[in-house]
Design a protein around this nucleic acid. Structure first.
Lengths: 197, 197, 197, 197
DNA sequence: CATGAATGAGATTTCATTCAT
DNA sequence: TATGAATGAAATCTCATTCAT
C-alpha cells in the first residue's frame, strides 16, 4: 500500500487521533473511533497507515518534530547562549500551552510500548538543534562532562514538568515559567549572570 | 475455616504483573498472562482483585510507597538539609537501580488512564516525608516561592530522568548520580557549599 | 450427600432464593448471592442441594404445593360446587396477593428450562384436590368433554392473569376478583345461577 | 459502497436464535451458539445487534407483531363481533400451531428479565387491533366494566393455555380449539347465540 | 458439617485488519 | 480508492462446583 496522495486526509486522521487520545486516553483510541473522528471510513484509515502501530508512530514523530521546530524557531543567531536558551524555552512553553492536546498525546505516546526505537531515533534527529543549543550552553557548567543524552533527558524532564504545572495552574504560568527557566539554567550553567531580563 | 486468603498469592500476582508489564509492556499484561505468571488460575486472580483496574491501582500504590519508603529510610535526623537530600537521593537511586523492573512499571502506571485520582492521592500521602524534606531544603533558595507541588514535580522529573540514564548506562551511573544530585541541589538551593563530599 | 438434618437452614436458603429471584430476576440468582442472602456460606449451599438445578426444582415444587394447599384449605365439604370453587378462588387469590414475591418466583420458574418433567408431575400431584374440584364443577358444563388437563390449564391461566391484574392494580382488586371468578365459572359451568353471594 | 448490511443475515440470526431458544431453552442461547446457527461469525452478530439484550428484544417484538398480524389478517369487516373474534381466534391458533418454535420462544421471552418496558409497549401498540376487537366484543357482556388491560390479559392467557394444549395434543386440536373459543366467548359476552358454527 | 478460596469453562463484547462491492 | 460489513482472536469477568482447612 503505497502512501496515497491525499495528504489532507492523512492529516485529518492524525488530527482525529490526537483529539481522541487527548480527551479519552489512548485506551479509547480504536481505529474505528479515530476514523469516525476524521470523517473517514474505518477501512480507509488503512490505506493511509498500514497498521495502527504505524499510525501511532507517525503521529509521535510528527508531534515531536513540530514541537522541536516551534522551540527553535527564530533563534537569535548572535545572542548569548543564555539568551538563546531562554528564547527556546519561551517558544517551547508557548507551543505547549497553545497545544495542550498535542502535549497530552505526546506524554502518552512517549511511554507507549508501540513506539519503536526507530521512531525515538527519528525524534532525536528532529531535535538536533535543541541538542546543539544545550551543548553550547553547558560549556563550562557543572554538567559539561556528562553524556549529552543525559543532559537532554534532564532538560526535557524539567521542561515537561514545568509545562505540566503551567497548564495545571494557568494563573501562575508566567511566574512558573521564569522559575523553571532559572532552574534549567542553573542546571546547565550553574550560575546566574548579574543582569538580564 | 476455609482455606485462608493467601497473602503470598496476592503478592505473587502483583509480582507477576510487575514482571509482565516491565518486560512486555502494559498492553501485553492481560489477566490471563498475569495469572499464569503467578501460577494461579485465571478466575483466582479475581478473588484477590475485583477488577483488573483495581489490581493495577494497588500495584501502583504499593510500588510507589515502597519507593518512597526506600528513599527516606534511615534519614540522619541531625544532618543539614543538603546532607539529608543527598541521603534521600542515594537511597532513591539505589532502590531504582536495584529494582529496574519495578521502575519501568511505575513509569508506565504513572501515565496509565486506569490509575484513579484516589490512587494518586494515596501516593502523595505516602510520599509526604519526601515532600517535607524538599520543603525544608528549598528555604532561602530560588524556588522557595513556587508551589510546593511544582517543586515536587520538578525534583521528581529530575530524579526520574537521572535514574533512567543510570539504568541505561550503568558504567557511568555513579558519576551521573553525583551530577544529578548537584543539579537537583542547585534547583533547590541555588548554591553550592564550599566543601562537601 | 444425604439430606442433612438442619431443616431451618434449608428453608433459609429457599427463602433467600425466593427473595432474590423475586426482586432481581432469575438471572441474578447465582448460588453465591442466594447463599449470602441466607446467611450461609457458598459451599454450604451444596450440602443442602446437590446442584443449583435441584434447588430450583425443590423451590418450585415447594411453592406450588404451598399455593395449592392454601387454595383448598377449609373447603366447605357440603357446599355446592360453585360455592366450593368460589371458596378456592378466594383463598387462592388471597395467598397470591399476600405472597407477591412467591408468586413472581413461581411465574419465572414455571417457564424455566431447569424445571424437570418430574417436578411438573409432582406439582400436578400436589394440585390433585384442585383438579378434583374442577372435575366436579365442570360436570354438565361446556367443557365437560375436554381433557381435564386442558381445563386445568385454562383455569390456571385465567387465575394467574386475574391475580396479575389484582397485584398490578390493588385498588380494584376486589372487583376484579369477582369479575374473574364469574369468568372462571362461566368457562366451567357455562351459566350463572340466579342468586348467590 | 461496502458490502451492504444484509437483511437476510439479520433474519438468519433472529431465526437461529428462535430455533436455539425453542429447542434448548433461553439459558443455552449464547451468542456463540446463535451465531454459529446462523452461519455467521461471532463478531458479525454484533454488527446486526449492539447487544444480546437488544437482539432478544427485537426478536420479541418481531415475533409478537407477526403473531398479532396473523391473528387479525383478513378480518371480515361486516361480520358480527362473535364472527370476528372467532375468525381472529382461528388465525391465531393456526399461526401458533404452524409455528410452534416461535410460540415457545414467545412464552420464554414474555417473562425474561431482559425484555424492556419499551418492548412491551411496542408489542402493545402492535396488538392494537386485537384490543379494538375485544373492546367491541365485550360490550354488553359481563366484563364490560373491567379495565381493558385486564380483559386483554384474560383473553391472552386463555388463548395461550388453549394453544399450549393444542400443541401438546394435536389429535384433539380441532375440538379443543372450539371448546376454547366458546370459553373465550363466554368470558367476553357471557352468552351463547342459538345457532352458529 | 461449615467455610470460602480455587478452579476453569464459558459468556459477552471489542477491535485491528481484510475484502467484497 | 472508498466504504463498512465480516472476521475471529483475545480480553475481562462470572459462576457452579470442588476441596483444603
Amino acid at each position: 500500500m503505497a502512501r496515497p496522495r491525499n495528504e489532507v486526509r492523512r492529516l485529518a486522521i492524525l488530527s482525529a487521533a490526537t483529539h481522541v487520545i487527548a480527551s479519552q486516553g489512548i485506551g479509547a483510541a480504536s481505529t474505528a473511533v479515530i476514523a469516525k473522528g476524521a470523517g473517514v471510513s474505518n477501512g480507509s484509515l488503512f490505506t493511509y497507515f498500514d497498521t495502527k502501530t504505524q499510525l501511532l508512530n507517525e503521529l509521535y514523530v510528527e508531534l515531536k518534530s513540530e514541537m522541536a521546530q516551534a522551540a527553535t524557531a527564530d533563534l537569535p543567531p548572535h545572542a548569548t547562549a543564555r539568551e538563546q536558551v531562554r528564547h527556546m524555552w519561551r517558544h517551547w512553553a508557548r507551543w505547549a500551552t497553545d497545544n495542550p492536546a498535542k502535549r497530552r498525546v505526546l506524554a502518552q505516546l512517549q511511554v507507549a510500548d508501540e513506539i519503536t526505537a526507530e521512531s525515538h531515533q527519528q525524534v532525536a534527529a528532529a531535535s538536533a538543534s535543541i541538542a546543539d543549543l544545550l551543548e553550547r550552553a553547558r560549556v563550562g557548567g557543572p554538567v559539561q562532562d556528562a553524556a549529552l543524552g543525559f543532559v537532554l533527558t534532564l532538560a526535557n524532564a524539567l521542561a515537561e514538568a514545568a509545562i505540566d504545572e503551567m497548564i495545571r495552574d494557568p494563573e501562575h504560568a508566567a511566574a512558573n515559567a521564569d522559575t523553571a527557566f532559572e532552574a534549567l539554567w542553573r542546571v546547565l550553567a550553574g550560575a546566574i549572570p548579574p543582569t538580564d531580563t
